[in-house]
Design a protein around this nucleic acid. Structure first.
Lengths: 120, 120
DNA sequence: CAGGCATATACCGGTGTGGGAATATACGTC
DNA sequence: GACGTATATTCCCACACCGGTATATGCCTG
């Protein structure tokens, strides 16, 4: 279960993280909010803890979980190369729309030469 | 296999996307660069395509794949709530280090705007 | 120390998914 | 049309993982 993405592939784990994004919470609270069986919550929290997404503090019989920033920062930096790409894309789109706006008919674009027997 | 995270849980798929981040590439090229069996590449590309991460263009017998921005933008916005959290964290750390550095500390540093690729 | 609450762990069964090998499809060339 | 290349698809199997149930551990209160 190495990668952060594998951890986040699980919907309930993402839900847990979303709740914890607001504030730290006890297991019982998470359990009630998500309407999940307690063992399920504990197991997912374990996975999240071992992956570094959360850490727990002991408060009497309760365990209070809170987020840790590192894995999110890693996610963010993984995303970085693609961010370059998609913002370029958006820029291009915007420029395109600009041109469309003041030039009614762009007539480039290729026509197909021979319509052939297509399958499917 | 709904979520984008489930798609990215697969290391080979992430590798494919990383290659495509540079430029569009044919299946054969991806195959050679990643040293993966061809069916594997095709299968992963299919998953990526159906999830909207890539699209393919036909060039004679070749299929050339390129990235699509949407899923990455979704990822980025999923990350947003946590970004708030972790940048607060970093601010605290920076302020702390500042105080450590210059003895009896002055007030505050300026706020950070956008996170960059950090190392550990 | 008993009993209760909060949480963690162990066990088990079903299922989805990735890898490998074989095969199918599409296209371009002779 | 036969062949070669490029890519897609199918089939099968092993295995990881999730959910559920039962049980263990830890701490608090009387």
């Amino acid at each position: 279960m190495e990668s952060a993405f594998a951890i986040l592939a699980e919907p309930n784990r993402r839900a847990l993280l979303n709740l914890l994004a607001t504030s730290e919470r006890s297991v019982g609270e998470l359990e009630r909010r998500l309407r999940l069986p307690q063992p399920s919550v504990s197991k997912h929290l374990r996975v999240l803890r071992e992956a570094g997404f959360v850490e727990s503090r002991v408060d009497a019989q309760r365990r209070v979980y809170r987020l840790r920033p590192e894995p999110f920062m890693e996610l963010d930096s993984w995303l970085a190369p693609f961010r370059r790409f998609w913002s370029a894309h958006i820029d291009a789109l915007e420029r395109h729309l600009d041109r469309m706006e003041r030039q009614p008919a762009p007539k480039r674009r290729n026509r197909r030469a021979s319509p052939k027997g297509r399958k499917r």
